[in-house]
Amino acid sequence: MGTPKMVVVNKEWCKGCGICVAFCPKNVLELVNEVVCIARSEDCIKCGQCELRCPDFAIYLKEVPENV
């Protein structure tokens, strides 16, 4: 259903507030050295809660072409 998506982080813009980590329903994210990282990508359900509430436009869902 639809194009597959993956969550990506723009580390340059992340200020490490931890909002995405706290509100991720599947506990996918972690802060490492005050920057968010995708610790358990296999658990990600692509719900977009992180993207919705990132104050810094630093995390979002990206469409992945199927052949990649």
């Binding site: 200020k15 507030c17 104050p55 436009f57 630093a58």
Partner: peptide
């Protein structure tokens, strides 16, 4: 990136 502090709601 914008000037707002970490965790400021303004970016959202």
């Amino acid at each position: 990136p914008h000037i707002w502090c970490p965790g400021c709601g303004h970016g959202i």
